[in-house]
């Protein structure tokens, strides 16, 4: 996402306005996508993004460079988004897949996905809504890992640093997320709810 040279980082630590602007310019899109996919509300997402940048501003001088600045920002944003979710639904808690829940998923007819043309389907607004609905069905932490890996293209090592979860746990969540979404998508296409011509 953003790689700072040592000189840029030194300037940032002194709260150089131009460097802060560069950081915001490079990180707003990726951070907003991550936060929005977690809280699913534009106003809440903007609040969380604002909180993330305020924390960055207040704590940048204490940034030790143990992780890259973007990784650190992702971690701040992740914690703030999970905290927002707890505030929105205090009784719900943060869900996770139960093993038995996951094992109920069945392998759908693969032909539907064989014939599926992703490029054409992405022109279909209804299809995009369906994709988002399925993404929201993932438990929060599973969704978080999927978004970081498959939308933001971060490495597993970075995701381990951001989430604070073990390597094993991150891999397991990613596997379950991909399989779950694949089954949902196959089911949707198999039921013939969409026009393949997009």
């Amino acid at each position: 996402m953003l790689k700072l040279t040592d000189d840029q980082l030194a300037l940032a630590i002194k709260l150089d306005p131009a460097t802060i602007s560069l950081i915001v310019k490079k990180t707003t899109g990726p951070l907003y996508n991550l936060i929005f996919q977690m809280v699913r509300n534009r106003e809440d997402a903007e609040d969380v993004l604002q909180e993330t940048y305020i924390k960055m501003y207040n704590n940048l001088s204490g940034f030790r460079g143990e992780s890259s600045l973007p990784t650190w920002l992702y971690r701040v944003a992740t914690n703030a988004a999970l905290e927002k979710l707890r505030k929105i639904s205090p009784d719900r808690g943060i869900r996770d897949f139960q093993d038995e829940e996951f094992q109920e998923i069945t392998i759908n007819d693969r032909r539907a996905l064989d014939e599926f043309n992703p490029e054409r389907m992405m022109m279909n607004e209804e299809f995009k809504t369906v994709l988002n609905t399925y993404l929201q069905e993932l438990p929060e932490k599973t969704r978080l890992v999927f978004v970081l890996r498959d939308q933001e293209n971060l490495s597993l090592e970075e995701i381990v640093m951001i989430t604070g979860d073990s390597d094993w746990s991150v891999k397991g969540r990613l596997k379950r997320a991909r399989s779950f979404l694949r089954e949902k998508l196959a089911g949707y296409l198999t039921e013939g709810k969409v026009n393949y011509e997009g």
């Binding site: 907003y32 996508n33 929005f36 996919q37 693969r110 996905l113 064989d114 599926f116 992703p118 389907m121 992405m122 995009k128 994709l131 988002n132 993404l135 999927f146 498959d150 939308q151 991909r178 399989s179 979404l181 694949r182 998508l185 196959a186």
Partner: peptide, 14 residues
Amino acid sequence: SLKKTVHVYRKTRE
């Protein structure tokens, strides 16, 4: 099919 699934979600960034 897994690859296609990941591909379509890459395109749905907010």
